[in-house]
Nucleic acid binder design. Structure first.
Lengths: 411, 411
DNA sequence: TTAGTTTGTTGGATCAACAGACAAAGTCGC
DNA sequence: GCGACTTTGTCTGTTGATCCAACAAACTAA
């Protein structure tokens, strides 16, 4: 139960040799330092069960690869010879995350320690541009990010509000962008000049869920992330793994039928969840047609700030609308909690901004509608990542590859 | 990406040494023979990438442990020295699965090759017995199974139609049994005399999903199993792993709100999925109150056989009821497919028996209501395991432990 | 009968982790 | 200030698993 992780009885495991043994232990040490902070070699040996001599050898190799560095002497211990702390050396390698969304393009580069080395977000009306032009503009941004990186680039991952086929990275359907059947991964790879690092494409909510997973530093391995926008996206992490499904189309929660007598959805049916919890639903109830908060040409964050202001001022119409959206959020949220039993339900996108008003009704619905005792232990939290969640998740997915196989970084 | 399986970036991997390296490769060879059938050492070496000499050594150890045996010479090859086939030696070790359900107790013992060495199912009115007495009777059955096993017992796993806490094996709530807050795992372990093998308890649908996963011999690693009974249970396998959620309470699909104007459910709400697709819903629509097919004191399988007979005879009322249940099944099924994007939706329990009539409306709903193109590639199949799915899954879960760590079997 | 092919074993090489000894570097008590 | 004690990190030699190359065994085909 140590090498192959034991939870995949049916899948073919891979034979191991000295090289993979070493790779595994390099990964163990590197992740140990990431997760538990700077440590002396002796403590790493104690914690992991590895031999002191082995840890010294592993640390030496990781230092040589630029992934760890020697820090200050350990001043916390009082007895005996003080240890030399070993800590993450972020600068050697970066992961790049990019995003195409309805109203903007965004790019971020994170170094190994999770610090942002480069970050940019530009407003772009993607729906009114052809995919090629959009991709050209995004490529420019990514090239800037790559240029800003000191060391090596571990990979680029692009987030899109779309159904993306897992294997090929082909975009199948992005209603809000007006794109379909477009080989984004290949097109982006070509524009970047077939770079040596991997280029992937994934669903926005999936990547945001990964970012949320990394954000919670606790011992939590099952979460559901809900991103509120015009539509509603879902990302699921279960057992510490992103749930992708067989073709990468998982997490389509927006069209759950919850209100049969409700409004018509973009998908053609009536009563889909996103018709009652999407941003449009909130604005229709909380504002008049000529209210600037409802004007889609204005910046979303400013419009949300206005709604927040009204709610804080105690405006009854706004509060009622928020209560209603929260109630509907709870109905669908409880379905998800019943199926997936997560530790945490994370509110992202506009749900996070308006979290103070949405959390209570959501929590109540979980208590009342989830069959497991005490809602299966599920908590509701607001993401702090704002609209950077997806790009961060994309950058992290590349960094994870380095943490899992430190030998990917040139010596 | 070989040793630790790479899909769990956040979890702590375990340091590896020579022993775990050997264990991993023993497992690889054993599973290779299980999954791809008898093979010569040379072919195993070719397929796995291991060295011929290494495979010889690994096979020798597995033979010594009674997990593999030398078979006949390979007659398919025409050129060169014929290889000695190596095949699974089932007899050395067995997994035991048990089940407590509303109307019966069941036990099965499967050897390493999946063959049933012992199998029994006795009708018991569990709801009218106290838990202790039921467990006494089950213990008798399990002891018979253990006695029937030739070699070693790898473990016992009990399936219950209940919410079971993953870690402790405590039964939290089993409405259909009338049990709650009962430490089944501990109680059973004690009655078996604290045996050397592990004793676990899990949800019935979870284990049935595992059995269905093993039943499909294809390269499929994402499936959803639906068991139809008075209630409806769900089991999810994703990425080859059973989805348990944070506390083991996943798969509670029965109380999805799908029919707000519908019948009152046992849970107190109205319109839960199981009020429209549970066996009761079908019988209420298809039969009169005095119809023997509706009589709960008769054997379920016989009542279902009667329904099948009527449907085959073209009885309009029966067919209409089946069509309606199928339509409702599709509405909830599509929600699950949208969230989980499985390769396969497996019909179990009474859904499997009446599959010929339920499949078509369910497939139609998936085509129409799933956002992913072509329903995300999801197929609907009927389980062939009947009411033995859960016990088989329980037995297999113990056998999986042996396949993952062959050194668990005494030499 | 001989050449050619494939299998499975053998002995030695390699490589990574392990075990124990030990010097280095600090604290504590007297 | 000094010795006893504790802890760190390195060094040396051992263990163990895989790999490599050579080779005998077993069979086919010409």
């Amino acid at each position: 139960m140590t090498l192959s992780d034991g939870r995949r009885p049916g899948s073919r495991a891979v034979a191991a040799d000295h090289v993979s043994l070493r790779r595994n232990n390099l990964s163990v040490v590197l992740r140990h330092v990431r997760d538990l902070g700077p440590r002396s070699r002796a403590r790493i040996a104690d914690d992991t069960g590895l031999n002191k001599a082995t840890v010294s050898s592993l640390v030496a190799e990781l230092v040589e690869r630029g992934l760890l560095r020697e820090g200050s002497p350990d001043s916390t211990r009082t007895l005996g010879r003080p240890g030399q702390l070993v800590e993450l050396d972020g600068s050697g390698v970066c992961g790049v995350g990019a995003e195409i969304n309805v109203e903007y393009l965004a790019v971020i580069a994170l170094d190994l320690s999770g610090a942002a080395v480069f970050e940019q977000r530009v407003p772009v009306d993607v729906a009114n541009l052809d995919p090629g032009t959009t991709l050209d503009r995004l490529t420019d941004l990514i090239k800037q990010a790559v240029a800003a990186v000191n060391g090596q680039v571990a990979g680029v991952t692009l987030a899109v509000p779309a159904l993306v086929q897992g294997e090929t990275g082909e975009l199948k359907l992005a209603p809000n962008l007006g794109w379909s059947e477009f080989p984004v991964a290949d097109e982006l790879r070509r524009r970047l000049g077939d770079p040596p690092y991997p280029v992937h494409v994934d669903n926005e909510a999936n990547l945001a869920a990964l970012a949320a997973y990394a954000e919670l530093q606790e011992d939590v391995h099952d979460l559901v992330l809900l991103t509120g926008a015009v539509g509603v996206g879902g990302g699921v992490v279960t057992g510490g793994h992103l749930l992708r499904g067989s073709q990468g189309y998982s997490g389509e929660v927006g069209h759950m039928p919850v209100a049969p007598a409700g409004r018509t959805c973009g998908c053609g049916r009536t009563g889909c969840w996103e018709t009652v919890v999407g941003l449009t639903a909130l604005l229709h109830q909380a504002t008049d047609a000529d209210d600037p908060a409802r004007d889609p040409s204005l910046d979303v964050e400013q419009r949300l700030a206005e709604i927040t202001r009204r709610a804080e001022a105690g405006d009854v119409r706004t509060l009622t609308a928020l209560q209603d959206v929260g109630d509907w959020l709870g109905i669908g949220g409880a379905v998800l909690v019943n199926i997936l039993n997560p530790d945490v339900l994370v509110l992202g996108g506009y749900f996070a901004v308006l979290g103070p008003w949405l959390k209570a009704p959501l929590e109540q619905a979980i208590r009342e509608r989830v069959i497991a005792p005490d809602g299966g232990g599920c908590r509701v939290v607001q993401s702090e990542l704002g609209f950077t969640a997806a790009v961060r998740g994309g950058a992290q997915i590349s960094l994870d590859q380095v943490f899992l196989d430190p030998t990917r970084v040139a010596q």
